[in-house]
Simulated assay, not measured.
Amino acid sequence: MKEILEIFGISGKREKLPGGQGQSLRVGDFVIKPIEEKNKYSWIGEVFMSVSSQNLAIAKPIRSKNGNFVENGYGVTHYIEGDFFISRIAEKVKACIELNQLLQTVAQPADWKHWSSPWQLANRVAWEEADLPGNTDIQSREIIESIKANYKPVYLTRQLIHSDLAGNILFNGSTPVIIDFSPEFRPEAFAEILLITDSIAWHQEPINSLWTTKHVDSLVSQLALRAIVFRLSVMIFLKPKNHAFLLKEFKNFQPLLNVLK
């Protein structure tokens, strides 16, 4: 670890941070964490080199002394003070919309289809671009198919979005702090609806918050169904034969799903 800190030119008191799968470490004014997908993380770093906002604080990757965003399997971002709130959904959605606007012209990288984390594979399942693993438990597969049976076509332009905002928007006073960028190329409205559906399932946000966006109800419903399939499919890609693992997450989304069907 000492060698990695030296390569990035950072020092200071070390403090383990919550979230980030328990692997993020604060070192002074920076956060260091292991990086599994070097190409993806380096691309994110390049994207945010040219992104700035007066209204959002964004934890951006930094380059090492060698000019790289990843060294020996680790990456570093700036540390920005902020607190997590399970409420403030209107402010979170507003921040999501602004972030979408900042990213709307970013082109999809050439190797995008080769990025294959469980989250990106699950997103492709949600958007009917890929199938579940062949060894998926039959009960889990039936749950996914029963939800997708309610799909109707969605025709919207795609752009770069943050696909995991619900737990990754903090607040420094009134300023939203965006951390742990998780890239996807989906409709900008999907980023908003995914944020809200996750907040309903995980953070006790009222279900009626789903109907407070500028989007028509029929579109909201379709995007919410895809958001739920995405989250459930993640569980399958992580543990395809463990129905109980998926069922635990399914119960979080079931009250919302009952309204959508």
Rank of each mutant, 00 (worst) to 15 (best):
Glu15His: 00
His162Arg: 01
Asn252Met: 10
Trp115Ser: 06
Phe253Arg: 02
Val93Ile: 13
Ser233Met: 09
Val259Trp: 06
Glu129Trp: 05
Leu210Gly: 01
Phe245Asn: 03
Ala201Glu: 00
Glu128Phe: 13
Asn68Thr: 07
Val154Asp: 03
Ala95Tyr: 05
Leu225Ser: 10
Gln139Leu: 15
Ile4Cys: 13
Glu188Leu: 13
Arg158Asn: 04
Val234Glu: 00
Phe30Glu: 06
Thr136Lys: 04
Ala57His: 13
Lys92Tyr: 04
Ala149Leu: 12
Leu165Asn: 11
Arg158Val: 04
Leu232Ala: 00
His203Trp: 15
Lys65Cys: 00
Lys248Cys: 02
Pro34Glu: 13
Leu219Met: 08
Ala107Met: 07
Asn68His: 04
Ala110Lys: 12
Ser64Asn: 10
Arg141Met: 09
Asn123Thr: 02
Leu257Ser: 01
Pro109Met: 07
Glu37His: 14
Glu46Pro: 10
Asn208Met: 00
Ser140Asp: 03
Ala224Ile: 03
Ile80Asp: 04
Gly82Tyr: 06
Phe8Val: 13
Val259Leu: 04
Asn150Lys: 10
Glu71Ala: 06
Val154Glu: 05
Pro133Ala: 00
Phe250Arg: 03
Phe253Gln: 07
Leu219Asp: 06
Pro34Thr: 14
Gly82Val: 06
Glu36Pro: 01
Pro206Tyr: 09
Asn252Gly: 07
Phe8Ser: 05
Leu210Tyr: 07
Gln23Phe: 12
Leu194Asn: 11
Phe250His: 10
Asp83Ile: 00
Ser64Met: 11
Ser221Phe: 06
Ala189Arg: 12
Pro118Trp: 00
Ile207Lys: 01
Val93Cys: 13
Glu129Ala: 07
Glu71Val: 14
Asn135Ala: 12
Ala201Ile: 03
Gly134Tyr: 10
Met1Gln: 14
Asn39Leu: 12
Val125His: 08
Arg158Ser: 02
Ala191Lys: 07
Glu46His: 12
Lys248Met: 14
Ser117Tyr: 04
Val93Tyr: 08
His162Cys: 02
Leu17Asn: 06
Glu184Tyr: 09
Leu232Asn: 00
Glu145Phe: 11
Leu225Asn: 00
Trp119Leu: 15
Val31Leu: 10
Arg186Asn: 10
Leu170Asp: 08
Val51Gly: 04
Asp29Tyr: 11
His162Glu: 01
Cys96Pro: 02
Ile62Tyr: 09
Leu257His: 05
Pro18Lys: 01
Gln108Phe: 01
Ala227Lys: 09
Gly9Tyr: 04
Asp164Tyr: 04
Ser53Gly: 13
Ile178Trp: 13
Thr136Glu: 08
Leu17Glu: 05
Ser174Trp: 13
His78Gly: 15
Asp198Val: 01
Gln104Arg: 14
Val93Lys: 10
Ala59Glu: 10
Ile179Arg: 12
Ile147Glu: 08
Phe8Asp: 05
Ser117Ala: 05
Leu223Thr: 04
Pro109Phe: 02
Leu17Ile: 08
Val125Pro: 03
Ser52Arg: 12
Lys148Val: 07
Val229Asn: 11
Ile193Arg: 00
Tyr74Cys: 07
Gln108Lys: 11
Leu121Ser: 01
Thr157Asp: 15
Phe181Glu: 09
Pro187Asp: 06
Trp119Asp: 15
Asp111Ser: 14
Lys60Leu: 03
Tyr41Met: 11
Leu170Val: 13
Arg88His: 07
Leu17Thr: 01
Ile4Met: 12
Gly22Met: 11
Asn100Gly: 13
